[in-house]
Amino acid sequence: MEMNLKIKVANRLIGEEEPAFIIAEAGSNHNGKLSQAKELIDAASRGGVDAVKFQLFKAEFLYAPQHPAFSIVKENEFPRDWLAELTTYANKKGILFLASVFDREAVDLLMKTDTPAFKIASSDTVNLPLLRYAASKKKPIFLSTAMCNLADIYEAIEVIRNEGNEQIVLMQCSALYPTEPSQVHLRAMDALKGAFRRPVGFSDHSLGILLPPVAVARGACAIEKHFTLSRKMKGPDHSYAIEPDELKLMAQNIRTVEQSLGSLEKVMLPEEKKLARRESLFARQDIGQNKEITAEMIEVKRPATGVEARFFLAFVGRKAKRAIKKGDPLLWQDAEA
């Protein structure tokens, strides 16, 4: 499988050496109210994330009416006639509008709003007909991988690729809400990247905001996190979601982590060099011109304004080219070879 470690969503590159793409997952926390959906978009915009995401599930496409889950899902559906208005609203707020698709109708509706990408929930990673249809639209796909083994993920990727679509981000996650830290398995991101040579992100269902920055430190190129206006609200997704102030702090922490990663080089920083907080060679006594420099004439002190202390023995035995005063730093140009 060829390497494709970067993709592009709208004007944002996602992958190695790029800032993490942060998705604020609103889920069904709109509670069926358009005004509340807009408040969620407002909070996501203020939180400094890249995208806000909702879920376009429809009970009739997921369960038979007699199934116990049917009524719960029905109550929490995202009204599809909101799509155009909320997409425009999000764009005006400076963030992207994304949605998880669970059926072909949802794919078509998002195409009408020129969605920048599709999200495929873990439950549908093995829904190959849906994957095939979404992939045929040639939009980037965020592919969640809970409940999946490597064979499931390989098959899903091949279905997408067979439609001529290489724009895939694999999302490590679990299908447990909330997820305990011991169930998160961030190291699985390494396995996904190694096996499939694709950008890998982390969809976090744990409580709090600790793990997304940790995931970024381990190489996650995208982060998805459920959020709500208040955990006190009624609904299936509110209790484990983070609130707006936490979302903003999480995004800030992620950006701080990215800054702290730095480069692969191990060198003295320019600012450290200015501090000169290391030892160097100094004259322990006055040294006359043409005088041979002995070990007794040299001492090691701070700051590092003279010859580095490691060259102590290399400096012994040289002749002073000039008179050197006690306490002066010793420089290479002060002594003959």
Rank of each mutant, 00 (worst) to 15 (best):
A241S: 12
L269C: 05
T228Y: 11
G262L: 08
E271Y: 12
A188G: 02
E272L: 04
A195K: 14
G194W: 04
F21D: 08
F78V: 09
E155V: 14
L229W: 08
H226I: 10
A314G: 06
D245A: 14
K326H: 06
E18A: 07
N29E: 08
L249F: 10
K6L: 13
K58A: 14
L40D: 06
D204P: 04
A188E: 07
L313M: 13
D152P: 10
S260W: 01
K326C: 11
D204I: 01
E18T: 08
N162G: 15
I287H: 11
S100Q: 04
R197Y: 15
W332P: 02
A146C: 05
A117Y: 02
E308R: 14
V159R: 04
S28N: 14
L176S: 11
E180M: 12
H205I: 10
Q172T: 00
T115H: 04
E155I: 14
N127E: 07
D328V: 03
P68V: 06
M233Q: 13
S122L: 02
P244R: 01
P212T: 10
Y89I: 13
Q259F: 14
L143Q: 00
L269G: 04
R198P: 04
R80P: 03
A24H: 04
T256K: 15
K234C: 09
R278T: 12
K325M: 08
A276V: 08
L98I: 00
K193G: 10
R132H: 14
S280V: 03
E308K: 12
K58L: 13
F21Q: 06
V49N: 03
Q167G: 00
A156F: 13
I223Y: 06
M111D: 14
L5G: 09
K8E: 13
V49Q: 02
N4K: 15
V214H: 04
L150D: 13
G47F: 02
P213H: 07
